[in-house]
Design a protein around this nucleic acid. Sequence first.
DNA 1: CCTTTACCTGTCAATCTGGACATGTCAATA
DNA 2: TATTGACATGTCCAGATTGACAGGTAAAGG
Lengths: 179, 179
Amino acid sequence: MSLRHALLGLLAHGPASGYDLTRAFEGGIGQYAWQAGHSRIYPELGKMTEAGLVVVDEAGPRGRKTYTLTDDGRTELRRWMLHWPEQATVRNETVLRMFLVQSLEPDDARALLEGMAEHCARERDALRAVMDADDAEHRPGDPLPFGRLAGEYGIRQYEAVQGWAQWSLERLAAGEPVR
Amino acid sequence: MSLRHALLGLLAHGPASGYDLTRAFEGGIGQYAWQAGHSRIYPELGKMTEAGLVVVDEAGPRGRKTYTLTDDGRTELRRWMLHWPEQATVRNETVLRMFLVQSLEPDDARALLEGMAEHCARERDALRAVMDADDAEHRPGDPLPFGRLAGEYGIRQYEAVQGWAQWSLERLAAGEPVR
DNA sequence: CCTTTACCTGTCAATCTGGACATGTCAATA
DNA sequence: TATTGACATGTCCAGATTGACAGGTAAAGG
């Protein structure tokens, strides 16, 4: 049910269409937090309208429908944000590979870990560059591809994984048990 | 299709039953990487048997079926581990909340971030304790609730999120724009 | 011996998801 | 004026996923 809350959260800082929201999921949120395509977003917006969490301003060119958060929607978003469950939904292919490194032969494990460390270093630098560019040319009012907080999280995330991969490589090199 | 690879990976270090695998998902892998219940695991093991990735040793008390990786299974696991796609599947409720902090009123945001920082500190300590206990009383041969590498990742993950939350709180306190 | 507690395997219905299919509009440029 | 590309909304289906339902076995303790 988190797609609903992702949409509520995105709508919290201003009205948007299904199309706008779809593009939002192509950015940071879809890369780090939650993925969704338009084929799931449109039906969900329909259900949310029925549930009274959002309303449609039926206006705009090309049949564009703009959705706005209702008070109920904002309340529900706040409720969800503030009480997190014991066991949160997690599904991450990269972390899954990290957990299964032990299933590889040492040479393969080394290759995988080295690849991961390099990949993280590259992505980290790229993200940093995007954020610095934003800082420079950003005019108040226009939307950021990355929120500041989200970007900072991304950077720390890459650094954590890179650090972990390097630590693991050292363990491997030292011949210590990987299990 | 990652459930399949998770199962292949878990089977890589020795034969196991559907029941064993179900319990494995209740541990670290289910908390940090990928979730699955027995109702999904049993059918998938069936399909994997059909596909020749695993074989069943139909033996054991209480109708227990033990699955063993075939050469094809090991090859497929290696292939999947070593070539990762551009865009990996990601779904993480906690990170989603992190991305949506900006949608809250400052007071609520502060409460959320403080809660997250505390939670991470607690979980980190608990995880460290579990790992130290394992180191102490672990006898070669019996399974670890946490692999060393996985545990280390968990700790670094908690530290990264905690650090991020604290950094965000400082920004918030300084009155800097959160967006 | 009896009862409880794991152990152990499955199915089913409802919902969620991702990719493909389908349709049409507006703006810019060649 | 024709065409392309971005804007914009939707449906459909196969497969994934979850939680509930269902049933049976061995071991251990009282």
